[in-house]
């Protein structure tokens, strides 16, 4: 299927005796948001770490446009177009928002470690960084130190960076965690705007956001997939109701 950007095949990760991810298969398609939900400790963050390369897989494979990523480190995967936002915002706190965005653009530029950069290349990098900030609604905040931005803005910045690098597969780990209603709305809109032309894997606890955003939904528990399908199908699934959505119908 041509529109599958990222595919996990029987992914497994053990921590000692614990199988944090125990044989997970799923596809993330271009132009789609695939949400993964599940209780705490289900293995969602571990799954994202496996896909991004932050953790090595114990078994199984990861395919990006059919190419195995299993042996590649996170930097190689980043350059191949996988972008990742962490559950705990991970940015360069002591640098300005603009510098953060510029680093993201630079990392995937032709010569990311240039010693004697061409002026034209530098101008192009700056331009793309400005554009990425603007697209994330941070156009006016470029000069501010990243750790002085509000919690929500830091999240926006992290997403802006991931996109600025040109990533076409996005792995977002609980982007709405700790957000106020207003901030959550901003970020939900931002995520929706990202899916055109990109494949998005979204781990999220906020069920309103999940059902508002997801084109496809996978439910994990104890490292396994217990249900997967369209949001409507999953909502009707009896296993899911008992295992996770048990206390009332969300949304």
């Amino acid at each position: 299927m041509p529109d599958i950007a990222l595919r996990a095949e029987n992914l497994e990760r053990r921590f000692g005796g614990l199988r944090a991810v125990a044989g997970v298969s799923l596809d993330v398609r271009r132009g789609e948001i695939h949400a993964v939900i599940g209780p705490n400790g289900a293995g969602k963050s571990t799954l994202i770490n496996l896909l991004s390369g932050d953790l090595a897989v114990t078994a199984g494979d990861i395919l990006l446009d059919g190419r195995s990523l299993r042996r590649l480190g996170p930097d190689r995967r980043g350059r191949l177009g996988i972008g990742r936002a962490y559950q705990k915002t991970t940015i360069f706190g002591a640098s300005s928002a603009f510098e953060n965005a510029r680093l993201a653009v630079q990392a995937r530029a032709g010569r990311p470690l240039a010693l004697w950069p061409r002026r034209r290349a530098e101008q192009a990098t700056d331009g793309l960084a400005e554009a990425a900030l603007a697209a994330a609604g941070l156009a006016a905040r470029g000069g501010i130190r990243a750790d002085r931005l509000s919690h929500g803005e830091q999240r926006q910045l992290e997403i802006a960076m991931v996109v600025a690098g040109g990533a076409h597969v996005l792995l977002l780990d609980e982007p709405l965690a700790g957000m106020g209603t207003e901030e959550a709305r901003t970020i939900t809109a931002l995520i929706r705007s990202l899916k055109a032309g990109r494949a998005v894997l979204l781990v999220e606890h906020d069920m309103d956001a999940v059902f508002a955003l997801a084109d496809r939904l996978t439910v994990m528990a104890d490292g396994r997939v217990i249900a997967s399908g369209s949001p409507q199908e999953v909502r009707r699934d009896q296993h899911v109701r008992t295992a996770y959505l048990g206390h009332g119908d969300p949304g």
Partner: peptide, 11 residues
Amino acid sequence: DNERRARALGF
């Protein structure tokens, strides 16, 4: 400043 982020960006 943040090795993990730098690596994830592709450096």
